[in-house]
Structures are given as C-alpha cells and as structure tokens.
Design a binder for these strands. Structure first.
Length: 476
RNA sequence: GCCCCCAUCGUCUAGAGGCCUAGGACGCCGCCCUUUCAAGGCGGUAACGGGGAUUCGAAUUCCCCUGGGGGCACCA
C-alpha cells in the first residue's frame, strides 16, 4: 500500500485520514506501507513540504516501510511510457493551448453542453501537426480514452462503480514543458511498486477510471483494488477547507492536541469498530494498537463525515488524562518554555501539571492556566473580564480581608490553605465568592484549583496579590 | 449542464427482514458531587428525507422523487 501526497502544502486532516487508513489496513493485514511523493507538478512542489509531510506523519505515529519515493526522480520512466503510448496510437499530440481549452470548456458550460476536451487534435494527420507546430504552438501528449463501452471496477467500500467511456474526455499525460502528469506517474508507480490496495478520498473516484485505462493501455497487469473513503466535510457539508477553521494537522498540533487524540478521532471519522461491549457497542477511546487490531475496510462508512471540533476537544481531554503525570510534563515543557522563557520554573510547572491534568482540554489551555505562576510579580494583572467579576462579588473586601488573614498564619499545604471556613464564617457561600479569589490570585476567574495553586505560588506572592486586589477595590 | 457517489438523533455512528417502543459517543438540558470551571457521576432531549414495490413483517431489499456532496485542469 502507499500514501501519495503532493508536496504542495502542509497535510490537510483529510489527507492525514487517508494516510491513517492506509497505514491501519497495511498494519492490520501485515502488508507493506510506502510513502510516495507525487511531485510531478514541479512548479507547485517544494522540498520543504516533502520534509514537513514526513515530520507530520511521524508525529501522528505513522511509519512506512518504503520511501519516500519521489516521482520527480522518475520522469524518464514516465516519459518513455508516454512515448510508447504515442507510438501505439493510444495517445496523440495536442496543440491546443491551455487557455484555448479552458475557453472552449467555459463556452460549453455556458451553452449547457458538457465541458471536457473536445477532441480537436484527436485525429490530426502529419501535415496538420507539422503546420500547428510550425506556428510555434506548445505540444502536449493527450491520452485517447476509449470511444465506447463502459469502465467499471469493484470498489472495496462502495461496490461496483461504472461509467460510460463516452463521458470521459481525453486527458493530458505530458505537459507542454515535457513533464508528466499525475495520472501517468500514478498508474506506472502503482504497477512498479506492486501496490495491491489503494485507499484514497472519494474526490478521486471519477479519476480512477482514467488511471485504470492508462494501466490497461500500458499493459501494466492487474490493477490494485480500490477503496474510496467518504470525504471529511465542514459544518456546511462542503469539503473541509480553510474557511472551516483549522484543517492542517500542524495547526492542531500547535494548538496542543495530542497525536493519540488526533489519530483516535480521525480513525472514527468514516469508520467504526465492531461492537464488543455489553451493550453491543465498542468504546470510543482507542490507542494505535487497538485501532490496528480492529480496523478493516468492510466497516468504512459511505456518507461524508462532518469534522466536529467539540468531540475532538473531548477526546483530547480523555487522552490527556490517560497520560502519566511525567509524560504530560514532557509534552507541556517545550511549549511552557517557549511561552514563559526564563521565568519558567520546572518545579512549579510540575505542580501545575499535576493539578491541571484532571480538567485540561489541550496542552495550550493547560499552559495558559499555569501562566500566573511564571509571570513576574510586577507584571501580574487580572484579566478585565475577571476583574469585573471580582468587583461584583458580594462583600468582596471582607472576603479578601478574611482570606489574607487566614493565609498569614495557616500551615502551608492545600488542606490548611482551604479558605472556605473563613468565607463561611462571614455567612457567605464559598461557591459564590470563589471567582473573586481566583481572579485575585490567578488573574482569571476560572483556572487551576485555587488552594493547590496558592500553595504552589507561595505565601508571599499569594498575599501580595490578594493585598493588591484589596487595595485596587478600595481605590476604585 | 453532464457524469459519479451518498442519505439513521444537531454531529460521529451501531443497525446486514422480525432481537428496534432504533443502541452508543460528542454536544445540549437537568440534577448530584465539587476548590471557580473546562473534570467526574446520574438522568433527559433528539433520528430511520418522501412516495411506491417486495414480504406475514422493512431503518434494513428494489424503483422513483427529493436532498446533499464530489468530479468534469497542461492540480493531485
């Protein structure tokens, strides 16, 4: 099997999901998984993306047995094949320019006719070709699709799929600059690499017929089995794209999603494991090993699946909770270091991770919450919204005074720090006034558990913040 | 416009003729717990697009309609 992205950008979650399904299937059945870079479009392909794609796949937890195979290094092979097709009359020289073809397609569309190459250069004789060439026109090689009959194949997830050849226009296999196109390279490489199963997105369903026709023309032997995955769509049911928010896997990584959560979530988009629980349902939280063991194509769904960021959030929290405290620290450290620089204190961070793990949604949110520990005291500030909340708290000055008094003398551990008795002695409900204390100490009205946070922050710093808040209330 | 694919709660899905008065998960709502809350527990809301046909019986099979999506490049 193979995953064959074009190195024209960072990997989209849809592409990653395709890579994942290929990997799961190969690993489940003990097959071979290769990475092939489809960089036949030299103008759009970039070496840095070849690197980036590998980095992303590795981060997710996918590995491959062969490659990366770069198609750009195999142009001679594709071009030789194209010459064979030309010599056999299965392809022909086309002198229509890209602009002309596009204009004729648009005209066809406007008149309600079907767009697609109109076959203008299909049956040129030698003299006509020479004349067009003499005009200095660019020359492409176009594959001659069968004139009649039906193309069909048995899709592993969709079953039989067929279309009449009459609907598939001739298509370019070698550009006017002499470089080969996707269809050609793809057909040849799949044959060459011994690919037996191709899993890819449904957006490629129609183009499968072209690849199949090329393979047949090339005498490339039995084609691989194809499985077309349902598309991943946005909330509006259209193909997932930038306008739907984060779509590149790297964006999710940057936002602090765990690779375990992404793999788990993506595996469940368009596939569901067979139920084995008491209620006949399978669990939702599955690690790579469990996914590999359970995966198969017969349980891939057919309808497009909408990407649900909220469910991903939930799943990420589940995975954060499954990490050991030590492991979570390792994941948090790099971004805490980046965020807080020299102000980061490893001991404090360790403590913050322990008290924050229980409720964290993403690594980023966790780092966000621990910020109050590392901000220099002179820079500490309460978020505007939280300050407003503090001011609205009933008898807030008394609450702050009582808290200060308690912290000045209590033992220094979370149990002793518990401020609730002090609040209750004022005849107030702790729940009602806690947001003010959160704001005063952590700078926000919701954050890491307060008493543990105060313990971590230390007596002096905690008292200083409470007194500052007290003074600010009086002054305002 | 033409071709292709698809159709169960808001979302991801289970369901392969009777086990379905349709199950689970996320979300949402309520209650409980609680050191705020973004965690946890319990409960609840919520779906087979429509019409025919086959059958004793259809979410499950077939047809039509409707709806949604994808494709129709010298991108992949």
């Amino acid at each position: 099997m193979r995953f064959s992205p074009a190195p024209t950008g960072s990997l989209h979650v849809g592409s990653v999901r395709t890579a994942l399904f290929n990997w799961l299937y190969a690993r489940h059945h003990g097959g071979t998984f290769a990475l092939r870079i489809e960089d036949t479009d030299v103008a759009r392909s970039r070496a840095e993306w070849v690197e980036g794609i590998q980095e992303t796949l590795h981060w997710l937890g996918l590995d491959w047995d062969e490659g990366p195979v770069l198609q750009s290094a195999r142009f001679d092979l594709y071009l030789a094949a194209a010459e064979r097709l030309l010599a056999a009359g299965l392809a022909y020289e086309c002198y229509c320019t890209e602009e002309e073809v596009r204009a004729r397609n648009e005209a066809a569309r406007a008149e309600g006719r079907t767009p697609g190459y109109d076959g203008r250069c299909r049956d040129l004789d030698a003299a006509e070709r020479a004349a067009l060439a003499a005009e200095g026109r660019p020359r492409t090689l176009r594959f001659r699709t069968p004139d009649e009959g039906v193309s069909s194949f048995d899709d592993l997830v969709r079953g039989p799929v067929s279309v009449e050849w009459a609907h598939i226009p001739d298509f370019v296999i070698v550009r006017s600059d002499g470089t080969p196109l996707f269809f050609l390279a793809n057909a040849l490489d799949d044959a060459d690499m011994g690919i037996t199963h191709v899993i890819r997105g449904e957006d490629l369903l129609d183009s499968t017929h072209r690849v199949l026709a090329l393979r047949a023309a090339l005498g490339a032997g039995d084609p691989p089995a194809y499985a077309h995955l349902p598309l991943i769509v946005g909330p509006d049911r259209a193909k997932l794209s930038k306008r739907h928010g984060a779509v590149a896997l790297e964006e999710f990584r940057a936002q602090g999603y765990l690779h375990e959560a992404l793999m788990n979530y993506l595996a469940l988009l368009g596939w569901a494991p067979v139920g084995d629980g008491d209620d006949g349902n399978a669990g939702e939280v599955l690690d790579a090993g469990e996914l590999v063991a359970a995966f198969d194509l017969d349980r891939v769904t057919h309808a497009a699946a909408a990407f649900d960021h909220r469910k991903l959030d939930w799943m990420n929290g589940e995975w954060i909770r499954r990490l050991s405290a030590e492991e979570l620290e390792e994941r948090v450290r790099p971004r805490a270091r980046e965020r807080f620089g020299d102000h980061l204190d490893d001991e404090l961070m360790r403590g913050a991770v322990r008290i924050g793990q229980e409720r964290a949604v993403t690594l980023a949110s966790l780092v966000d919450q621990m910020g109050f520990l590392f901000v220099p005291d002179d820079d500490f500030a309460i978020e505007p919204e939280s300050w407003e909340r503090l001011q609205k708290v009933e008898r807030v000055t008394e609450v702050l005074d009582a808290s200060i008094a308690h912290l000045e003398t209590c033992d220094w551990n979370a149990d002793a720090i518990d401020l609730r008795p002090s609040i209750e002695s004022l005849g107030l409900k702790p729940r009602k006034v806690m947001p003010a204390l959160y704001a005063a100490v952590e700078g926000r009205h919701a954050g890491l558990p307060l008493f543990d946070s105060i313990e971590l922050l230390g007596r002096d710093r905690s008292l200083a913040r409470l007194r500052a808040a007290r003074k600010r209330v009086t002054d305002s």
